[in-house]
Simulated scan of single mutants.
Amino acid sequence: MTVRVVVADDQAVVRAGFRTILESEPDVEVVGEAADGAEAVAVARRTRPDVVLVDVRMPRVDGIAATAELAGPGVVDPVAVLVVTTFDLDEYVFAALRAGASGFVLKDVEPDELVTAVRVVAAGEGLVSPGVTRRLIAEFARTRAPRPTGPLPELTERERQTWLLVARGLSNAEIAAELVLSPSTVKTHVGNLLAKLGCRDRVRAVVLAYERGVVLPGSRPGAGGGPTGP
């Protein structure tokens, strides 16, 4: 199955570089390019890609506003958005995640990591780049107090443990090793967890965990608070 991608960045050389990297893979096709957020939305609506790769800062309409139009709350047929960021733009990443982004990668991402990120997001799993996960999570929790919004759903003990590990940025394989489970079992637990939390991917589950105070920076499973039922 071919993953269809739209690349949005105001720098032509960056778009060309991403296109070259992505189209070197037999299962990835770049179906459009955009130089700003407004054009990204228009191209995405016309081509219906699997993933839109969006730079944060672009003229006219920035990447966050474009993300909200493509994947935000209330969008009937959302498109997966992968945001490109740099370490000095962390605050924009939080806004992008809230706007509906399915994940983010660094501007200087290695070619193989970029391709992996696109594939993961296209598969609907969502991605928090391992290279910046812990830094972003720590900053997110430091600057934003938990915001209770009603009771959490009933979770099994395994689902509770899985949520804490997902919030720490672990992949399914790493969670399987931590809990001594098979990857397929972990995938099932993650799927059940996301369904109960009402999150379409693990990125949303990470944000929710920190917004609700379920986990704190550097905490280990079982340390501090944990999700509870109503």
Rank of each mutant, 00 (worst) to 15 (best):
V52W: 07
G126A: 11
T2A: 12
A40G: 08
D88F: 10
R142N: 09
G32C: 06
A42G: 10
V109M: 09
D50L: 14
R45A: 14
V41E: 08
A177E: 15
A138W: 01
F87L: 13
A71S: 05
P230W: 07
V166M: 04
D62E: 12
G37K: 03
S129Y: 04
D9V: 08
P59Y: 02
S184Y: 06
V190D: 05
L136P: 00
V206F: 01
G150W: 03
V215Q: 00
P227E: 13
L89V: 09
A138I: 11
V109T: 01
M1A: 08
A68Q: 12
Y92L: 04
E69Y: 08
G226W: 05
P111I: 08
L181M: 15
G222D: 09
S24P: 04
G124C: 06
A205N: 05
R60K: 13
G72K: 00
V56Y: 04
L136I: 04
R147M: 08
R220F: 06
F18D: 07
V120D: 04
G17M: 04
V41W: 00
R15W: 14
R200N: 07
R204N: 09
L181F: 12
G225Q: 10
R98Q: 11
R48D: 15
V115T: 15
L194D: 00
R135I: 12
V180P: 00
V56N: 01
E91M: 12
A35C: 11
A65G: 13
S129A: 13
P230A: 07
D50V: 07
L97N: 03
A145W: 06
V81L: 02
A71P: 14
R45D: 05
E29S: 14
V79S: 02
G63C: 14
P49Y: 11
S219E: 11
E39P: 00
E29R: 03
T162D: 01
Y92Q: 06
V51I: 07
V52L: 12
V79G: 01
L164S: 14
S24G: 14
V13H: 09
E157Q: 13
L197W: 02
L170M: 10
R220I: 11
A195L: 10
G103C: 02
V14S: 11
P26F: 11
E211A: 05
V118R: 03
V83W: 02
R220N: 13
L165W: 09
